[in-house]
Amino acid sequence: MKEKIKKTAISIFNTNGIANVSMKQVADILKISAGNLRYHYKTKETLLAVIYSDMYAETLDYILPENTYITLFHFEEMMLKFDDLQQRYCFFFNDIVHIIKTYPEIAKQYEKSNIVRFKDARKLIDYYIETERIVPENDFINYNKTIYNIWMTSTFWQSQKLAINTASYTVNKCRSIEMLWSILLPYLTTKGLEEYKQLRKFVKLPAN
């Protein structure tokens, strides 16, 4: 029953937004009593915490593989997995500011996990520098800021599409990976650009 409640809640949250859904509504759609729902999840925060725990568990494989040569496709693969996660849990990313303000414990967990991700991303960037696919950091290039820009773009990709939805404006009518590459491409070396060209030759960017 717990799993059914969770899946139903995610679907309703995705459709209506977490702020617009009460636990009673979740119970009504499941055709169970509010007391039955509270038996499994006492509050909406309890339910959201379990959903977030599942989301975080899915991201644990977004790490550097060991003892192997890591291509630029690893970056793309990680970002595509995150894009898929965002689409399946779109309510979380559309309502992220509300969630952070309303549920402080979840906000702490989310911040902590992102700090870990920033460190992992820096390791990947440093590896690409060492293998001469990305230019070294200098007085004009700060890769910690580049990583943060990539995080902001990927995290708020879903919500920005809601904010800028004009049909004639086409800049954001693409998958997030295309926008993320536009951030990273200027930093690629000649070797890195050649690898990227080979990547695009054999792996096409996904359609909207």
Rank of each mutant, 00 (worst) to 15 (best):
M1P: 10
E3A: 00
E3S: 00
K4W: 01
K4N: 09
I5R: 00
I5V: 11
K6T: 10
S11N: 12
F13V: 07
I18W: 00
A19W: 01
A19H: 05
N20R: 04
S22Q: 04
M23I: 02
V26N: 03
D28E: 13
D28C: 04
I29T: 14
I29A: 02
L30A: 05
K31T: 08
S33T: 15
A34E: 13
G35R: 01
R38M: 06
R38I: 04
K42S: 10
K44Q: 14
E45T: 02
E45I: 03
L48I: 11
A49I: 02
I51P: 04
S53N: 11
M55F: 09
Y56E: 15
Y56L: 14
Y56K: 15
A57N: 13
E58C: 13
E58L: 14
Y62M: 14
Y62I: 12
Y62P: 00
L64T: 06
L64I: 03
E66G: 05
E66H: 09
N67I: 05
N67S: 10
N67P: 02
T68P: 02
Y69S: 06
I70L: 02
L72W: 00
L72Q: 01
H74S: 05
F75C: 04
L80E: 07
K81W: 01
K81E: 07
D83P: 03
Q87V: 01
R88Y: 06
R88C: 11
Y89I: 06
C90Q: 12
C90W: 08
N94R: 13
H98I: 07
H98T: 12
I99E: 01
I99A: 04
I100N: 06
K101A: 13
K101G: 10
Y103G: 07
I106D: 09
K108A: 08
Q109C: 01
Q109L: 03
Y110V: 00
E111Y: 12
E111S: 12
K112V: 04
S113H: 12
N114V: 00
N114E: 14
N114C: 00
I115S: 14
V116P: 06
K119W: 02
D120L: 07
A121D: 15
R122C: 03
K123A: 07
L124D: 13
L124S: 11
D126G: 04
Y127R: 03
E130Q: 15
I134K: 05
I134M: 12
V135C: 07
V135I: 15
P136S: 10
D139P: 03
F140M: 12
F140L: 14
N142R: 12
Y143M: 10
W151Q: 15
Q158L: 05
Q160I: 15
T166N: 12
T166S: 11
A167H: 09
A167M: 08
Y169H: 13
V171F: 13
N172S: 08
K173N: 11
C174E: 12
S176W: 01
I177N: 07
E178D: 12
L180Q: 07
L180T: 05
W181L: 03
W181H: 06
W181G: 07
S182C: 04
S182R: 11
I183S: 02
I183L: 08
P186L: 02
Y187G: 06
Y187T: 09
T190C: 00
T190Q: 11
K191E: 09
G192Q: 02
L193D: 14
E195Y: 00
E195R: 01
Y196K: 10
Q198P: 01
R200P: 05
R200T: 15
K201Y: 09
F202K: 12
F202R: 09
V203C: 10
V203R: 14
K204M: 08
L205G: 00
